[in-house]
Simulated assay, not measured.
Amino acid sequence: MTMMMMMSVMVCLKMITTNATESTQYESPEYTLVHSESDYEIRLYRVAAWMIAPVKSQISFEKATRNGFHRLFQYIEGANLNSSRVPMTIPVLTSIVPGAGPLRSSGYSVQFYLPVKFQATPPLPLPELELEPDHWNSRCIAVRKFSGFAKDKNIVTEAEKLAISLSRSPWANYTSSETEYAYSIAQYNSPLRFIGRLNEVWVEVDGCQSNLLIAAS
């Protein structure tokens, strides 16, 4: 990545200086909290439209995230067939395609949640960006929060901690078999923010819809 590309990514990410109490100024995918423990929670995310940047040639989570986000940044700045400016949202989500690589990956998918204004009709990206629309069905996601920076050296450890928590929970045998991703890393902050950072590990699970219905009855 050239210095100019890096600067453009950092300029855009500088806008994401929020923590959990400040995030209301940025749109995020909507969810219902189904269950909460000290070390994980289960969320039911609603139907949503995302734009994704597949990254197949990188073995580094950090490099893949920078590569994918740079393309998404161009898209939201107007590199689409409508020349539309798309407001920034949070989090930036990097999903790991399972494989035998150093981070147990064969590739990555960097994902941008589309604001409500563009949910029904996302602007079409310019072909050279190699982006793809992704329409989520409602889904259950197990989440583990962690602070600091999400890096190659710690994301697997955090994913393993979530797996251990789930193995001791009612969702022990409910890891989703339908997803193409092993796990995802959600990042909420600019790389220029050093204090109060928020990241999350996401893993899809089954069964939280029924648990929500039981809790509501």
Score class of each variant (00 low, 15 high):
residue 4 M to A: 07
residue 6 M to R: 15
residue 10 M to I: 10
residue 16 I to H: 10
residue 16 I to E: 04
residue 18 T to F: 11
residue 20 A to S: 06
residue 22 E to A: 12
residue 26 Y to I: 11
residue 27 E to N: 01
residue 34 V to W: 00
residue 35 H to Q: 14
residue 35 H to S: 10
residue 38 S to G: 03
residue 43 R to A: 13
residue 44 L to S: 10
residue 44 L to P: 02
residue 45 Y to M: 05
residue 45 Y to D: 03
residue 46 R to Y: 09
residue 50 W to S: 06
residue 51 M to N: 05
residue 51 M to D: 00
residue 51 M to W: 04
residue 57 S to Q: 01
residue 59 I to L: 12
residue 59 I to R: 06
residue 63 K to V: 07
residue 65 T to R: 01
residue 66 R to A: 10
residue 67 N to P: 01
residue 70 H to K: 11
residue 78 G to T: 08
residue 82 N to K: 15
residue 83 S to C: 13
residue 85 R to S: 08
residue 85 R to A: 08
residue 86 V to I: 15
residue 86 V to W: 02
residue 87 P to K: 00
residue 88 M to Q: 02
residue 89 T to Y: 09
residue 89 T to N: 08
residue 89 T to I: 10
residue 90 I to A: 11
residue 91 P to F: 03
residue 92 V to K: 04
residue 92 V to C: 08
residue 95 S to D: 05
residue 100 A to H: 07
residue 103 L to R: 11
residue 103 L to K: 08
residue 103 L to T: 06
residue 105 S to A: 13
residue 107 G to C: 05
residue 112 F to M: 15
residue 114 L to T: 15
residue 115 P to F: 03
residue 120 A to N: 07
residue 122 P to G: 08
residue 124 L to Q: 15
residue 124 L to A: 14
residue 124 L to F: 08
residue 126 L to Y: 04
residue 130 E to S: 10
residue 131 L to M: 05
residue 131 L to F: 04
residue 131 L to I: 02
residue 131 L to N: 05
residue 132 E to R: 10
residue 132 E to T: 12
residue 134 D to I: 07
residue 134 D to R: 14
residue 136 W to N: 09
residue 136 W to A: 12
residue 136 W to L: 09
residue 137 N to E: 02
residue 142 A to S: 04
residue 143 V to D: 02
residue 143 V to F: 01
residue 146 F to M: 13
residue 147 S to C: 13
residue 150 A to D: 01
residue 150 A to F: 04
residue 153 K to F: 15
residue 154 N to T: 05
residue 157 T to G: 09
residue 158 E to I: 14
residue 163 A to F: 10
residue 164 I to Q: 04
residue 167 S to D: 10
residue 167 S to N: 11
residue 170 P to T: 13
residue 174 Y to H: 10
residue 176 S to P: 05
residue 178 E to M: 02
residue 179 T to C: 05
residue 179 T to A: 09
residue 182 A to L: 09
residue 182 A to F: 06
residue 183 Y to H: 12
residue 184 S to H: 00
residue 185 I to P: 11
residue 190 S to D: 03
residue 192 L to T: 00
residue 194 F to R: 04
residue 195 I to D: 14
residue 196 G to I: 03
residue 197 R to F: 08
residue 198 L to Q: 11
residue 201 V to N: 06
residue 201 V to D: 08
residue 202 W to H: 09
residue 203 V to R: 15
residue 204 E to H: 14
residue 208 C to T: 06
residue 210 S to C: 10
residue 212 L to F: 08
residue 212 L to A: 11
